[in-house]
Design a protein around this nucleic acid. Structure first.
Ligand code: MN
Ligand code: MN
Ligand code: ZN
Ligand code: ZN
Lengths: 168, 168
DNA sequence: ATGGTATTGAGACTCGTTCTTAAAGGAACC
DNA sequence: GGTTCCTTTAAGAACGAGTCTCAATACCAT
């Protein structure tokens, strides 16, 4: 399964924000937490900025390993969490197990159709669903922090492919 | 975090179906796959039938270990997958990582509000969301097989608890 | 430049899950 | 019952994503 063949909802390949806008948000966040901007965190940010729309932690690790400036696995995970905390990245699901990240600064909230055959990700936006979610939470006095709404299935291209048989 | 303090949508604690109905479905499925009903598979089925509404694989393993008839870890996972395949069980998310299973025979489809503090699970049913999902899939020529729609946050009880500070 | 925190890298570790393999079980036929 | 040919199992090794540990190093305010 390929890792990324995005069909975006019409946007550009890379976030519409400039690197500086995103970097600024990150720096500001670090400041509020009395955390420091380091060479590693800067490199990670650059890598994230140039990564495809939906990427996995392991992709970043690989990318960075190939370059001069190595960044350790632990640091990658630590930094991804920071970027998530400050609203630069969002973490979602590829399948029942795998995760991917995507940059969300300056983008609308959206959810995903994930093709379980070829890995293609189709983004969708449906404010009415979001609104109903809110209603449901209100009904139950639940304070929503986060949600996961991913739809798994077969994209148009993959629907005609022969199905795999049970292997045993 | 406790593992299960369900507030169901009004249903009974255990699936409304009789054990025999569920067992029959499982046997039928095994037959179609030329698989056999074994002592272990039977014990698993019983354990599943008596488990709380939402349970984890590890819970079952523990339960079975305490009894006379031991069933190995590998067999538990294999059988849970079979039960999922034949529509007896559904697998969902507790958090970004953890999974739980629940019996779905004879129950309506529903999704969950998961309290990230105490682990309480509130089920909800919203046909209009399901319908919109279908519309979206139609729009993109996507054949839906499965979806995950879990909402994470704080339940009514947990909203007033003091928040934990960043630990470092 | 110094000093006191924050940060890092490497690798150990965890945890859920899957894989491997040899031994045991079941069904069908004799 | 015995034989044959599968399927299934148990146990533990292996895996993979992610986290933790801790000694060595980097930041940055002063
Ligand atoms: Mn997306
Ligand atoms: Mn449920
Ligand atoms: Zn596809
Ligand atoms: Zn709660």
């Amino acid at each position: 399964m390929k890792t990324d063949s995005v069909v975006g909802s019409g946007g550009s390949q890379i976030s519409a924000n400039t690197y500086e806008e995103v970097a600024e948000r990150f720096r500001a966040y670090l400041a509020t937490q009395s955390l420091r901007m380091t060479r590693q965190r800067e490199e990670l940010l650059t890598a994230v900025f140039h990564a495809p729309r939906h990427f996995e932690a392991e992709d970043l690790i690989k990318t960075l390993r190939e370059r001069q400036g190595h960044v350790s696995r632990a640091t990658v995970y630590r930094t991804l969490s920071l970027l998530e905390e400050c609203g630069v990245l969002r973490k979602s699901l590829f399948g029942h197990n795998r995760h991917f990240y995507e940059s969300v600064v300056g983008r609308h909230h959206h959810d995903h159709l994930v093709c379980i055959r070829c890995g293609k990700i189709q983004e969708f936006e449906e404010p009415r669903i979001e609104e109903m979610q809110e209603q449901i939470c209100t009904r139950y006095g639940f304070k929503i922090l986060d949600h996961v709404h991913e739809i798994f299935g077969a994209c148009e291209n993959c629907q005609n492919e022969p199905t795999e048989a049970r292997k045993h």
